[in-house]
Structures are given as structure tokens and as C-alpha cells.
């Protein structure tokens, strides 16, 4: 059978004119064709990373490094233990503002309306920026927790809870401000809120029993509540973005 079918490869004259007509029609279709690309999540992450301002990804790294430096210096002092956690978590609470700022910048520059009419919707852009911000912050928090655990000889989980809770609770405040204030320039609002949060968590310096074993459950409860509230705020924000009023900068 192979021989007979192989012979068919050579056989059958094709009318050159008709072939040319068919190819011309195909060519016309190609000219009119619009290639539709659907970028992958990886590409969308890359686009934001490539085009957005880098400072709000760098600042958390610099801040975490600075905090660790300060804490290291202080750890040489006798009796400084709880204070180290309090200091670090206070600084990390402040660090949370950079993620909020990066999201609010979209709206501060009126880009929100324009991006809402793009294929890659402003809601997705916000989500991507939060993922990038979250990743950097997450890594920094883990590094700090790991290092601090070594210095303090505490359980990693405990240290994580002590640091993560102020971070998330403060983020709840930042995003609440973003959702309900809608000022044109949120930068100063966030800086002020960050300073307030940092100070509030520093108050724990005067409450040493807050870090005792028995209080761990309370910390975890607070962490859980923060997570729930934060997720709720993010969902609300994305919902409001999809509704549209939030992204529109200019009303007659």
C-alpha cells in the first residue's frame, strides 16, 4: 500500500491559476486578520514589574535591612528581647504603606479610567501590583522572622505571628483609608497613617506581658481577624473598581 500512496504524492496536477486565486484569497484574509494575543499571568507580572516605579518594591527591602541592622545593634544590649520584636514589628507595620501607595498611584494619576478600558483591566493591574508587593513584603517578613528567631532563640511560628499581625492589621487601616477617603494625593495620608500605626505598635514596648505564652492565642485571633478584614477590603475594592465609580476621576 505504501508504494501506491507514495505515488499519489507526485500525482495530480494542480491548476496553477486556481491555486493562485485561492492563495490570493488567503492573503486577503491574512491582511485583514488581527492577531489576538492573550498574555499569560507571568507576562502580566513582567509588564507591571518592567513599567512601574521600582521604589515601592525597593523600599520594603531597604527598610527591612535597616530594621534588622538596628535590631542587631540593640540585641547586643542586655535584657533587650521583647523590645526587639516590638521594634521590628512596628517598623514592618509602617512598611505596609508601600503596597497601598503603589495601588493608589494608579488612581492618583487618573490612569484608572484609561486602564479600565484596556484589555488588561485596571482591576487586574491592581491585583498584579498587590501580588508583587505582597511577595516582596512576604519575603522580607519571613527573612526578618527567621533572623530574629535566631537571635532570640524563639519558635519561628511565634515570631512570625508577632510580626505578621501588626503588618496585616495596619494594612487593613491603609486600605480602609484608600477605600473611603479618595483624596487626590494619598501619599501624605499613608505616611501619616504609617507613622500612627508604627507608634501604636511601639506601645507594646510598655506591655511586656503581651508577648507572654498565654497571649499567643489572642495574637492568632487578631491575625485571623486581620486576614478576614483585609480579604474583605480587597474584594470590596475590586468590586468597586468593576462597578466603575472608583476609577473615574472627573465628574461634571
Amino acid at each position: 500500500m505504501e508504494k501506491e500512496f507514495a505515488a499519489l504524492q507526485k500525482g495530480l496536477l494542480i491548476d496553477g491559476k486556481k491555486r493562485a486565486v485561492a492563495l490570493a484569497r488567503i492573503s486577503k484574509e491574512v491582511r485583514e486578520k488581527k492577531i489576538r494575543v492573550t498574555p499569560s499571568l507571568g507576562h502580566r507580572l513582567y509588564v507591571q514589574l518592567h513599567y512601574m516605579e521600582k521604589w515601592y518594591l525597593l523600599f520594603p527591602v531597604l527598610m527591612a535591612a535597616g530594621l534588622l541592622g538596628v535590631v542587631k545593634l540593640l540585641s547586643r544590649q542586655e535584657g533587650w528581647r521583647i523590645e526587639l520584636i516590638s521594634l521590628l514589628s512596628s517598623g514592618i507595620a509602617f512598611m505596609g504603606i508601600f503596597g497601598a501607595i503603589s495601588v493608589s498611584r494608579i488612581f492618583a494619576n487618573h490612569m484608572g479610567e484609561l486602564e479600565a478600558a484596556c484589555f488588561f483591566h485596571v482591576g487586574e493591574i491592581v491585583a498584579v501590583r498587590m501580588i508583587l508587593s505582597g511577595l516582596i513584603n512576604g519575603v522580607m517578613i519571613c527573612v526578618c522572622a527567621f533572623i530574629l528567631r535566631g537571635w532570640m532563640r524563639e519558635e519561628l511560628l511565634k515570631v512570625l505571628v508577632y510580626i505578621l499581625t501588626p503588618f496585616l492589621a495596619s494594612n487593613c487601616l491603609y486600605f480602609a483609608l484608600f477605600l473611603f477617603l479618595r483624596e487626590k494625593n494619598m501619599l501624605f495620608v499613608f505616611l501619616a497613617a504609617g507613622a500612627v500605626c508604627a507608634c501604636l505598635w511601639l506601645i507594646l514596648l510598655c506591655v511586656p506581658w503581651a508577648y507572654e505564652e498565654g497571649m499567643l492565642a489572642a495574637w492568632m485571633l487578631l491575625l485571623l481577624v486581620s486576614v478576614i478584614v483585609f480579604i474583605g477590603e480587597v474584594c470590596l475594592m475590586l468590586g468597586q473598581i468593576r462597578e466603575g465609580e472608583m476609577v473615574c476621576s472627573h465628574w461634571n
Binding site: V37, P39, Y51, N109, E113, C118
Partner: peptide, 29 residues
């Protein structure tokens, strides 16, 4: 779409801005 008050990042250069929007509009690379 061109909004009445259209947005841009002030420190971005014009060509980079257009390239960014081209990416958002999923133009073939």
C-alpha cells in the same frame, strides 16, 4: 478610549508610556 481628563505617569517618557499602554491593550509583542 480617550477620556476627557486622561491619565499618565508624569515621569514616564512618551514612548515608554505608549509601549506600556500597548502592553495593557495586549498588542502582539
Amino acid at each position: 478610549y480617550l477620556p476627557q481628563e486622561f491619565g499618565y505617569y508624569p515621569d514616564m517618557k512618551a514612548e515608554r508610556y505608549l509601549r506600556y499602554l500597548a502592553e495593557l491593550k495586549a498588542l502582539p509583542p
